[in-house]
Design a protein around this nucleic acid. Structure first.
Lengths: 200, 200
DNA sequence: GTCTATATCTAGATAGAC
DNA sequence: GTCTATCTAGATATAGAC
């Protein structure tokens, strides 16, 4: 976060690589993938446009690193929410949906932008691994709610992710009117929807 | 659709404006908003890069026209699905969710790309009107299912759009594995989820 | 490890010919 | 209504100095 120090020139970063990932995430949230550029990230950090290429071979690998970091953070947020929710499996699963929404909203939509992007052509090991880890987390939560079969658990997870993802998309895209659209209110709706999906 | 005639040069279109909208939609579906460009659309139609500017003042207005057309088509698809579903309000609402998914999938994700974009800064009258019309369609369907209050109907619509939008996002982003992921299968899951939301 | 400078490319948009 | 030609701007990525 000391990345935002107003460095003009000749500044020496302690950890430019990490700063690039953070700043990229911010820029994605503010400007979207369309207006994201390596050069803009460099400017934001007060370094030359060449500097990022000392840490990432190209733009795609930088975005890949951002994506992996975001997926790891999201996974952690979901796990923490489930833990906080207590022992009831239904509460835990519903809380996971709320945490998903809350995390993405808190990051200003950066996460959503990343995953809406065509990042699937990258040799992005870290990202795929983190996505799998998130899936495992959710599958465990779903199974605990009493799904009879594995297939049933998978479909509950898919539906829950879909609804959480949908709420965050609509929120990020400005679908909801200004009033009655605090992050908490959207998260609460996602939680309620997740519960309905379990009962349905 | 005759836009894809392999015209090299000096070709005279009957309706370049409409062809531009169609080709833009295709390009968005294939390449995403990030790689969309007016120049690329022109190349696709075999016209000069200057030609589109005879029909649209700038890139944003072209995208706006695409967006409005897509919203109108989606609205029509939803209405048709509800009609086909028969008289039961629950069937009609669930069918709407399925139609949403099916339309977006059929267009290769072009619709999703458009709405995921930051198109909200445009003076896009047509698009806003079409979005409102879709909302009206869905509110009517929701009210018919027996929502006690207007607020309740609004929240049911929001949840249904969220889950449909979520499924299409995940589908477009390649979340689902190759197997068991025909469009119809995803649409069926959205339909089922919509029904669960009504009951929850 | 970062900078300056630069080569290369592509896009958006406009002017004027036909 | 479309084309050719062009201007401007900004991005990716590299080379070589410090």
């Amino acid at each position: 976060m000391e990345a935002s120090v107003s460095a003009k020139q000749g500044y020496h970063h302690g950890d430019l690589r990490a700063a690039l990932v953070d700043a990229s995430f911010e820029l994605l949230a503010e400007a979207g993938l369309q207006r994201f550029s390596v050069a803009a990230v460099a400017r934001r950090l007060g370094v030359s446009t060449a500097a990022p290429y000392r840490h990432f071979p190209d733009r795609a690998h930088l975005l890949g690193a951002v994506s992996a970091t975001a997926a790891r953070d999201l996974n952690a947020a979901v796990r923490a929410a489930a833990e906080t929710a207590g022992p009831d499996p239904g509460d835990r699963m519903a809380a996971a949906a709320g945490a998903y929404v809350r995390y993405v909203a808190r990051t200003g939509g950066g996460f959503h932008v990343i995953y809406a992007a065509e990042l699937h052509h990258l040799p992005d090991e870290a990202r795929r691994e983190q996505t799998r880890a998130l899936m495992t987390t959710l599958l465990d939560l779903a199974t605990a709610t009493g799904c009879a079969t594995h297939r049933e658990a998978v479909q509950l997870v898919e539906a829950t992710i879909a609804v959480a993802h949908g709420y965050t998309s609509l929120f990020a895209d400005g679908f909801f009117a200004r009033k009655s659209t605090s992050v908490d209110s959207i998260a609460a709706r996602a939680t309620g929807a997740a519960r309905a999906l379990m009962n349905g």
